[in-house]
């Protein structure tokens, strides 16, 4: 084991309160076609406090979805979790047996995916699927379960919930399906919901409705939320803190306003500058090049080959330092205190 990074990791929730979820130095590798293993998630650490929303932002291949799957141990071969800890309720989930793990999934951690058809079974009605979850976790059966289903569908503002409970997923519109999946995710009253691109496949007006709903559910159920998205606009409206991922690593982590208004890492700056809409009629500020494929990342800073501010130091792997109090960054431009 390598010694822990000397620089202070400062973006932590309130002092003395144990976070709801703590991810420490998580590493998940994938076996490549040539037999080598390469990290898709490389030493990722963050915490989520009770009631807090963390936005995990990155482009495709950044490792944000693999991070989510690793938290609930749903990584499948050729992927493999090789290191780190994921602590919820004081337990490291990597120490649990599969039966204990199943009670964490759903009961403590709910899932909302981009495509509802991943989570919803096409051959069962919405109501039957929620009733099954209630039964699995011994929360309600029979008439009580039916009443709970209708309450949940009503809570996610599905009109005529008593009729919709008997509908099959394909009979609902995209927006209603997403609401049904949120109801399913909330049915076992989890403390944390992991939402992986929950609005990416939706039209902009439906997206706005679903984000409003997630905000309301967060308050009503006192939820913590890990919101995974590529859209910084979605994060701006939802997250308390933001972690930016690039090539398997978190390169910046800070309160949302700090990331959006005072981005520290050159990648975050580039990402914000490349977003359209700010200055109509002009060229966009693109980031040169592309994300290197997994398995051919540079040894040092993974962003260095595309970085306008790279220098000699970037050939080595940068540690986490503080760009400002509570604002962590992985970049040699910020030597920090103890680095």
């Amino acid at each position: 084991m390598t010694p822990p990074a000397p620089a202070p990791a400062t973006s932590q929730p309130a002092h003395g309160v144990a976070p709801l979820l703590s991810v420490e130095d998580l590493t998940t590798v994938f076996r490549l076609a040539d037999g080598r293993e390469a990290p898709a998630v490389d030493g990722v650490s963050f915490t989520i406090a009770s009631g807090e929303t963390l936005g995990l932002v990155g482009e495709s291949g950044s490792g944000k979805s693999v991070t989510a799957l690793s938290i609930v141990r749903l990584v499948r071969p050729p992927g493999r979790i090789t290191g780190g800890r994921v602590v919820i309720d004081g337990h490291n989930v990597f120490d649990l047996d599969e039966r204990e793990m199943r009670s964490i999934r759903g009961r403590r951690i709910g899932f909302v995916f981009q495509e509802p058809m991943v989570a919803l079974d096409p051959v069962y009605t919405i109501g039957a699927q929620i009733e099954e979850t209630l039964a699995v976790h011994a929360l309600a059966r029979g008439a009580a379960a039916r009443r709970r289903v209708i309450e949940l569908l009503d809570a996610v503002r599905i009109p005529r919930p008593d009729e919709r409970a008997d509908a099959y997923p394909h009979q609902l519109s995209g927006g209603l399906r997403q609401r049904a999946m949120i109801a399913l995710a909330l049915s076992a009253e989890p403390a944390l919901v992991i939402a992986d691109e929950p609005t990416t496949a939706l039209d902009v007006t439906v997206q706005a409705e679903i984000l409003d709903l997630l905000r309301d559910m967060r308050r009503a159920f006192n939820l913590s939320l890990l919101l995974i998205t590529h859209d910084l606009g979605v994060v701006a409206g939802m997250a308390d803190r933001v972690a930016v991922m690039y090539a398997g690593r978190i390169v910046e982590q800070a309160p949302t306003a700090d990331v959006l208004h005072a981005p520290a890492h050159p990648y975050t700056r580039g990402l914000l500058a490349s977003m359209p809409g700010a200055r109509p009629g002009t060229r966009l500020e693109a980031i040169a090049g592309t994300v290197p494929p997994i398995g051919s990342l540079p040894i040092g800073c993974a962003f260095a080959p595309r970085c306008p501010r790279r220098f000699e130091a970037c050939d080595e792997r940068p540690p986490i330092t503080a760009a400002a109090p509570g604002h962590d960054v992985r970049c040699f431009l910020y030597p920090g205190a103890g680095a």
């Binding site: 902009v204 706005a208 905000r215 409206g237």
Partner: peptide
């Protein structure tokens, strides 16, 4: 109006001030 006010904005934290159609 509904379409334009539903666009996520970097400068708005929390709920968007949307016009519904």
């Amino acid at each position: 109006r509904a379409l334009l006010t539903a666009i996520p904005r970097l400068d708005v934290t929390g709920r968007l001030d949307r016009v519904e159609y």
